[in-house]
Amino acid sequence: MDATAVPGIDACQRDADWVVSARAGCQQSFQALYQNHAGRLMPMLWRMSGGDAGRAQDWLQECFLKAWRHLDQLDDPLRFGAWLKRLAINLALSDRRRQQLTTVNEGMELQAAPAPPWPAADQDLERAIAALPERARQVLVLFCLEGFTHAEIARCMSIDEGTSKGQLHRARQILKDSLS
């Protein structure tokens, strides 16, 4: 399954030009980067948050602030999109890890399953994903929707590949049961 949209060369070059300008302090160029990428990150973050729109927006905001601060660390401006996505995922995962230190209750998520804040065609599936247990949901989003491999997921989430595969199987089984 090809879950990741590969941006064209022109789009990457346009991003790179904006990155160069933003590095020089041009906020208009950074705003252009936001306009071009925030809409791609938002559905992913909303799903990773379990349907918490406020939290997803907080992550999005923090992601762009961090990107602005660390633009100089981006080696290849042509790969801004991939860099930004990885930044957003790391933020989401680290924030969820912090939360888990205080509240470990996956069962709660089965109770509330909000609809996404955009006109979604498959609301049932969106709700079912949002209601998945934490780690199973993260693995499913990264593997099935963002095109990560199990090895990449294992690195991101500090788990081993076997755990990633197990969580994916669990997520898919829950989805199939809930959608039947």
Binding site: A5, Q31, M42, Q57, L145
Partner: peptide
């Protein structure tokens, strides 16, 4: 059904307002 899920939405303008006011 997973492949058909929406991958993109409109960028939330309220987030950019927050971001732009905090850019050092």
């Amino acid at each position: 059904r997973l492949a058909a899920l929406q991958r993109e939405c409109d960028p939330p303008p309220e987030v950019w307002v927050q971001v732009s006011t905090q850019l050092p």
